[in-house]
Amino acid sequence: MSDIAIFFLHGLAYAGLLFLVSSGLTLVFGMMSVLNFAHASFYMLGAYFAYWLLQITGNFWLALLISPLMLLVIGALVERFLLRKVHVLGHVHELLLTFGLAYIIDEAVKLIWGTNPHAIIISGFLAHTVNIMGVTYPVYRLFVFGVSMALGLFMWLILFKTRIGIIVRAAVEDSPMVGSLGINVPLVFMGVFSVGAALSGLAGVTAGPLLSVDPGMAGAILVDAFVVIVVGGMGSLGGAVLASFIIGELQSFGVLLFPDFSLALIYMLMAVVLVIRPEGLFGEKQ
């Protein structure tokens, strides 16, 4: 019994990480219809910034706060000076732009920090372990899940319970109308994109201590993030939550029950979802 509970817990922690990584991606797609290929590179930048900040300040909490803020600024600049220019040319151009941006960031990271992997070291109570039903469990894995829960709740509150959320959602539905009501629509989009970038930065910092910080980390997470948002439904926040949960648990119990094809299980899930509901679990029909 406790065995199953532990594997469930493993699944939750990994689901937390998946949601952190995919939330920004699905937000930007849902609110701007931009499929941001540079998302995983932002995530990597978040982790590298955290590594750098940790070297200077030695404080993980500070890194957790400042690194996403740095990505917020980068996101705003990218939207204002790059994305907005190609917006009129259509989605393919936006996709290509973010694709190129991903390459540039990946190479820049190698130039600045080299190809040697680095570690983000946590200390204090985050580095401790707790005893759950007689099993040792690291506090940090619970922390990852906690952060993603808090983030999910926060995003839901903003988007569906505040005036900002109403404006953003309205701007997606009918931007000329919202614009004529005196709202600065380009500013709204800039805000959405930079928040998306900040979220990927937060994911990078949070993943850092669990994984390692290296130039391959963007490529390693990109596919996972796409699987989550395809299964959950492109642009759906609730879908990302559910898909992260399913994939996290499937991964964990897959290793326990079918170790030889645990990886295949996830792609099988994606195939099944695409056949039965091509728009994803919570996606809207186009």
């Binding site: 065995d3 493993h10 922690a13 669990l210 390693a220 991964q251 964990s252 290793v255 326990l256 170790p259």
Partner: peptide, 10 residues
């Protein structure tokens, strides 16, 4: 592999 926890538990 990113999450080794299920393997470690085994």
């Amino acid at each position: 592999t990113k999450d080794f926890a299920p393997y470690v538990s085994q």
